[in-house]
Each structure stands twice: as C-alpha cells, then as structure tokens.
C-alpha cells in the first residue's frame, strides 16, 4: 500500500481537528476536535511503524500511550469544563475573556461579546444569548455567579 494514503488522510484529519479547535464555541466540542487531532497523529504513528518494520515497534507503543494520555486528558478536560460551567453558567470558550486588555474591563468585554454575537447572528438564525449567570444553576452556584458578575 502506498504510504501516501494514510499520510494524507492523517493530514486532512489533523486539519479538520484544527478547524474544530479554532472554530467551535462549546468547550466540549473543542475537546472532541482535540481528539480528532490526536487520532490523526496516531494514524501517522501506526502507518509509519508498519512501513519501517521497526523491531521495537515504537510507533505502535507510542500510539497506545497516546490513547492512554488522551483518555486522561479528556477526563481532566471535562472536569475543568464542568468547574468553569459551575462558576460561570456557561462553557463557551470565547466568553472566558478575563485576560482581555481593557480600560473599563466589563464594559469592553460586553462590547466585544456584542460584536461577536452580531457576527454570529449575521450568518445564523436569531440567536439566543447565554442565560444570565446563575439563572439556570443551583443555589450554590448562584452565589458564586453573583459574586463574579
């Protein structure tokens, strides 16, 4: 079999994952895209291992390790996403902008949000803003969300 087939497939899968990481709003979807990228790498590892006939089978061993690490990563990642969601009432990546450089921090974040929202709504249906912080969460997180807002 030509090596080009798996290599090209891996490259395309990687770029698909890349697009997902850069374009998706929901943090969990971003994690999925990361999985795609990891798998693209795995495919490369396996294909080159088979091609090289390595006696140590480094490629396949590393693939196994990657899968294990990916499992750990997804566990930790999901825990972080859940913690963020509990505190913010949202897991949208582009709303986590506390490090933005602003004069009037909140006002400008809101303005940026509005701009983003406008650009989103320009190519989509009338959109639904994320609920006000804490409205849909339990009592414990309500106090937190109020403290942060």
């Amino acid at each position: 079999m030509h090596l080009a087939y798996p290599a090209v497939l891996a490259a395309l899968l990687f770029c698909t994952g890349l697009y997902g990481v850069l374009a998706r709003r929901n943090a969990i979807l971003v994690l999925m895209s990361v999985e795609l990228m990891l798998n693209a790498v795995n495919l490369n590892l396996v294909a080159f291992d088979v091609w090289l006939r390595d006696t140590l089978h480094s490629g396949q061993a590393l693939t196994l390790f990657t899968i294990a690490i990916a499992a750990a990563e997804i566990g930790i990642g999901l825990a972080i996403v859940l913690a963020v969601y509990r505190n913010r009432g949202s897991s949208d990546i582009d709303r986590l902008r506390d490090t933005a450089e602003t004069d009037e921090a909140d006002a400008e974040i809101d303005a940026a949000d509005a701009a983003d929202a406008a650009s989103v709504s320009a190519d989509a249906q009338p959109h639904r803003r994320a609920e006000p912080a804490g409205k849909s969460t339990n009592a414990g997180t309500t106090t937190n969300a109020e403290a942060t807002s």
């Binding site: 990481v21 850069l22 374009a23 990546i93 582009d94 986590l96 902008r97 506390d98 490090t99 933005a100 450089e101 974040i109 940026a112």
Partner: peptide, 12 residues
C-alpha cells in the same frame, strides 16, 4: 491593546 481580546481561539 486591541489584539489582546482575551479570546483563546484568536490567540491560537
């Protein structure tokens, strides 16, 4: 400053 949007995706 305008580049510092705080959006991770932009940075990435």
């Amino acid at each position: 400053r305008r580049a510092q949007t705080g959006n991770v995706q932009t940075y990435l």
